[in-house]
Amino acid sequence: MSQAFDIVLLLLLITCAIAVIHTKDLLAAAIIFSTYSLVMCVIWQLRGAPDVAMTEAAVGAGVTTVLFLVAISRTARREK
């Protein structure tokens, strides 16, 4: 059961990583990247690293996403 969940999470992680590369819409890419961080956070927690999971959730899913959004709002939304 736990292994099946791991595999689902890792597949989700790989899907997110590939989707980030292929999206031309930078806003969507930023959101997908924050999903990646969130999945990664769950994996850290399952692997028994709550400290890293907290950092990943706060920095990866929270602050960097906001900084990406600010950067996008100051430049262009679509990749050329």
Binding site: P50, D51, M54, T55, A58, G62, V63
Partner: peptide
């Protein structure tokens, strides 16, 4: 407990944002 300066500081920073 799990946590510390880096994590708590980030939460505070996110609150400011």
């Amino acid at each position: 407990s799990p946590g510390g300066g880096f994590q708590g500081g980030t939460i505070l920073g996110a609150l400011a944002i």
